[in-house]
Amino acid sequence: MRLLLVRHGQTPTNVDYLLDTAVPGPGLTELGEAQAVALPEALTGEDIEALYVSTLLRTQLTAAPLAATRGLEVIVRDGIREISAGDLEMLPGDTEQGELYMRTAFAWAAGDTDLRMPGGESGAEFLGRYDAVIAEAAQSGLGTVAMVSHGAAIRTWTAARADNVDIAFAAAHRLDNTGVVVLEGSPSDGFKALSWAGASVAPAGEGGPAGEPLEDAG
Rank of each mutant, 00 (worst) to 15 (best):
V133A: 08
A197D: 13
P118I: 01
L3N: 01
G45R: 11
E215C: 12
E121R: 11
T21A: 03
G123S: 07
L183D: 06
T11K: 03
A171T: 13
A171E: 13
R70K: 15
A34K: 14
R103I: 02
A68M: 10
R129S: 05
L3D: 00
H173I: 00
L5K: 02
D47Y: 05
A199R: 14
N177E: 02
T156E: 05
I154Y: 09
D78P: 13
T13F: 14
A135Y: 07
M117C: 08
A193H: 01
P92F: 12
A64I: 06
V6Q: 04
A137Q: 09
L57M: 13
G79C: 10
A170N: 03
Y52F: 15
S54K: 00
V53F: 02
G98C: 07
G27Q: 05
T178F: 06
V201H: 04
A160T: 03
A204G: 13
D94N: 14
A160N: 09
L214Y: 14
E125Q: 13
L51N: 10
V23N: 06
A64P: 10
M1G: 12
V6N: 02
R7V: 01
E121I: 11
A34I: 02
R58N: 02
L91K: 14
M147K: 02
R161T: 09
P24V: 06
R116D: 05
Q35M: 05
R103D: 09
A197T: 00
L3S: 06
A22G: 09
L115Y: 08
N177S: 09
G111L: 11
A171Q: 13
T13Q: 14
R77D: 13
D47C: 11
N177Y: 04
A105K: 00
A135E: 15
R77C: 05
D16Q: 15
D94P: 12
D94F: 12
G205Q: 08
P65L: 10
S140D: 08
I48R: 05
R116C: 12
L19A: 05
A67M: 04
D189Y: 13
A67Q: 03
G111Q: 08
E121L: 06
G143Y: 12
A171P: 08
R2Y: 09
A67P: 04
V23S: 06
V201W: 04
F106I: 00
A50R: 10
A42N: 13
P12I: 09
A36D: 03
A197W: 01
A159N: 06
L39S: 05
K192T: 15
L43P: 01
M1I: 10
W196N: 07
A34L: 14
I154G: 02
A202F: 10
L183A: 08
G45Y: 11
E121C: 11
A217I: 09
